[in-house]
Amino acid sequence: MIINHPILGPRDAQEFVYLGDANLINRPDGLTASPQEMHDYVYLRTNPAGEHRELWYHEQGDRSWLVVTRNTVTHEITKVELARDVARQMGRSK
């Protein structure tokens, strides 16, 4: 698979480390979240067959985190964003 890095252009997926569902960006506040909320965040996944937004880390590149939109049935990648930009769009400071 080729991941079209927003800064570096097309890169082989082998340069990246895969983490999983992009919702892992949204970690609840550990001091205020209920045990159930933390459990759901850490252990439960939507795991769709089809379009999936997921986190890839460019370990053998510029070490940026990306949010890749990829189809889990066809492996086709339709969108690649910097995770930083996605987090800021959601109102996060970084």
Partner: peptide, 18 residues
């Protein structure tokens, strides 16, 4: 392999990735 797909019919999210 398809557990998440079938259990989604019951509104469940699973501690599983395919």
């Amino acid at each position: 392999g398809s557990s998440s797909k079938v259990m989604a019919h019951a509104g469940m999210r699973l501690p599983i990735e395919s």
